[in-house]
């Protein structure tokens, strides 16, 4: 039985098939490759490391369980994992708010009274704080596009919406961020 050392560029599907065949060294490589992206997406969505770790573990567990039935060529494993992570995060956010996200109205871009927590001299904290004020779907689209650096078609697959809908979410999300950060340019180290 072939052992995988994690340094090669063996395809994910090959590794998953090997794991399904009983090769546990393949599981180690898949764990190293995919737990991190799941963890980071969950953390950016939930802003809680403990919850993000639970989500990442659950997403990977679902991968292990589906391994024997994985149909090669139908989806990228990374895309599938992002989708599972997104769904798990959505469930947790719903439980937090105790309302359905689909029914919840997205706040207007310039909702008065929404406080953006900007820490003096830390631009990244300012952006993170602004991101946390976005509606969940805008936040997810921007996170996948600008922080995970995925293409719009893959984001559309993860979010199960059209590419046009992704573009709209990105546009509105960035507009909102720009508005949130407006007036802070000099504070953030930028010239107006």
């Amino acid at each position: 039985m072939m052992a995988f050392d994690g340094s090669g560029d063996v395809r994910d599907e090959t590794l998953l098939a090997a794991y399904a065949g009983g090769d546990q060294s393949a599981a180690r490589v898949l764990t190293l490759r995919h737990t991190g992206p799941c963890l980071n997406l969950a953390f950016r969505m939930l802003s809680d490391r403990g919850e993000a770790e639970d989500v990442a573990q659950e997403a990977m567990l679902r991968l292990w369980k589906i391994a024997p039935d994985w149909r090669a060529g139908e989806a990228k494993i990374s895309t599938w994992l992002y989708r599972v992570t997104r769904n798990l995060c959505t469930d947790r956010l719903r439980k937090r708010r105790n309302i359905g996200l689909d029914e919840a109205p997205e706040p207007a871009d310039d909702t008065p009274g929404v406080e953006v927590r900007m820490m003096e001299g830390d631009r990244h904290d300012a952006l993170q704080a602004a991101l946390e004020t976005l509606p969940d779907r805008q936040k997810l689209a921007i996170t996948l596009r600008h922080l995970e650096e995925l293409g719009n078609p893959e984001i559309a697959s993860i979010m199960e919406i059209s590419v046009e809908a992704v573009e709209s979410l990105l546009s509105r999300g960035k507009r909102t961020l720009a508005n949130r950060l407006a007036g802070r340019s000099s504070e953030l180290g930028y010239q107006s």
């Binding site: 573990q57 990244h124 600008h146």
Partner: peptide, 30 residues
């Protein structure tokens, strides 16, 4: 510029999390 800075802020997988994920893998191993 802000996105580029935030991209660099990534959580590393803790040994505990890696251990939990691998334990699940071994337990669920077909």
């Amino acid at each position: 510029d802000l996105f580029a800075g935030l991209r660099e802020r990534r959580l590393d997988i803790s040994p505990d999390l890696a251990g939990r994920v691998l334990a699940d893998a071994f337990e669920a191993s077909p």
